[in-house]
Computed example of a mutant assay.
Amino acid sequence: MNAQRGSTVERSIADLARALVAADAGGWTPDGVKSLAGQLGWAWGGTPDRPLLVTGPTSGDARLRPVGKYEERYVDGESYVELAVPLAAVADDAAAQAAAFRAAREELVAALGKPSVMGSHGGMGPFYDSGPLWGAPFTRWRGSPNTLELRAGGSGPELVLRPTGPAENWFWRQGVGEEHSISGFFGSNRDPANAGLGLPGRWTARSWETVSTSLGDFLGALPAEADALGITIGMPFYGRTGAGSPILFDVACDGDRLALGCFAPDGIDPAALGWGTLAQYPDTASIWSDDARVWRVDAGGPGEPKGHALAEMLVATARAVGVDEPTDLIVGGEADYVDGYHVTYYGLGLPTG
């Protein structure tokens, strides 16, 4: 394809989103996407293997994703599965990336209303793409035949228009039960747009090594993703032992800072396992007051938590308490409800109860 001049008009993020929602991709066929480009005032560019729509904005041209070997089994006549528009080029650190995503999300919410779906792609997005290391949050305005998504891209937030069916078909088919078959977390609300939304099954961690990996990935990205999404996470963990299923941990991410609390039974030395006190972490007083029985760690803000070290500490503590198997470490059901969304933590591989 020969590159042509695209529109020189800079749209706001809100105006761009409205234009994408109103556009007709004609079934995402070649002719339909050419018509879409014309509706948006953009021109063809790139190559047949890596087609672009020349948009004009300094943040970069829009990328079209053709159907290839990773997409073909999930489509139903579409030749393309997404159009991704970069919104900004942002410094390569978690705090800056989260802030840019949050600003774009707030503008989109003001324009389009609350998204019907939100979450994190974790380490594996639609069609097996890998996400940014700092975190992979997304918000989604589900529709038919197309869905609009704000997602974390390689250099900053991206606005993505895609046919609804293929990506949802891909997601649903990942529920095969194998370890790490799905990552991240997925939340949906009661928006009528979610009628007919299918959700995949979950997988179960079969070893403590798997728990350390999955929990480490989750904790390392959590403050950046929570900040980007504007959510607060409160996640208790219970441990099934011969003495019952007492609460062992509390993972709290309020705003953009991650803190972990430990409710250790008698006979356990939390300090030897890496836990600290209120005197060491005074900022956690707003979460667990001055209760000396709660051991704690302030893990920091976006980009700061040492996710895998934290996960190993949690696993070592659970095993010291007498939690024998990963299936006996249970995520409290309280964590399933976040800001009006019902959330499934697919990437953890742990039971919820």
Rank of each mutant, 00 (worst) to 15 (best):
A136H: 15
G153D: 03
G135L: 02
P192M: 01
A91M: 05
A99R: 15
R102M: 01
L150V: 08
P163Q: 08
R151Y: 09
R105M: 08
G113N: 02
Q97F: 00
G113W: 00
G198A: 05
E209K: 12
S181C: 08
G119M: 00
A104I: 09
I182A: 12
V160M: 06
G184T: 12
A136P: 01
D92K: 14
E178N: 13
P200Q: 10
R105P: 04
G135V: 04
G153I: 05
R173F: 00
Q174L: 14
G113A: 02
G113V: 11
H121T: 06
P137V: 02
A91G: 00
A195R: 15
M124K: 15
F101D: 07
L148M: 13
R206V: 10
S144T: 08
L112K: 05
G177E: 04
F101R: 10
G196D: 09
F185R: 12
G125E: 07
A195K: 13
N189D: 15
L159W: 05
D93S: 05
A95I: 01
F138C: 06
H180I: 08
W141R: 08
P163F: 10
M118S: 10
G175A: 09
G123E: 09
G123D: 12
Q174I: 02
F185S: 11
T210Q: 13
R142L: 00
G198E: 05
E209I: 06
G196S: 10
G177W: 06
G131M: 05
E178R: 15
V176W: 06
T204N: 13
E106I: 09
R151V: 14
F186E: 05
N169Q: 09
W170E: 01
T204W: 13
M118F: 05
E106C: 14
N146S: 03
S155P: 01
K114L: 06
A110W: 02
V117L: 13
N189R: 10
A96E: 00
Y128N: 13
R190I: 01
L159T: 03
V90G: 01
L108R: 04
F138H: 05
G123H: 12
S183K: 07
T139M: 10
A89R: 14
F185H: 15
A96Y: 02
L148A: 04
W141C: 08
L108W: 06
H180V: 07
F127T: 11
A91W: 05
T210G: 12
L161S: 14
S130N: 09
T204F: 07
R190M: 07
A110L: 02
P192G: 11
R105S: 00
D93G: 10
S130V: 13
Q174T: 14
N189Y: 14
A111I: 01
A100Q: 03
R173L: 11
E168M: 07
F127C: 01
L112M: 03
P137Y: 02
G184K: 12
W203D: 02
A111T: 00
S130G: 10
G143C: 08
I182D: 04
G153R: 01
R151L: 13
W172Y: 06
T147K: 15
L133Y: 09
L199Q: 02
S188R: 14
Q97A: 12
G125A: 14
R102F: 11
L133E: 15
W208K: 09
L199H: 06
L112D: 02
S183F: 07
P200V: 10
T210N: 07
A111F: 00
D129N: 13
G113M: 03
R140H: 03
L199S: 00
P132K: 09
F127K: 11
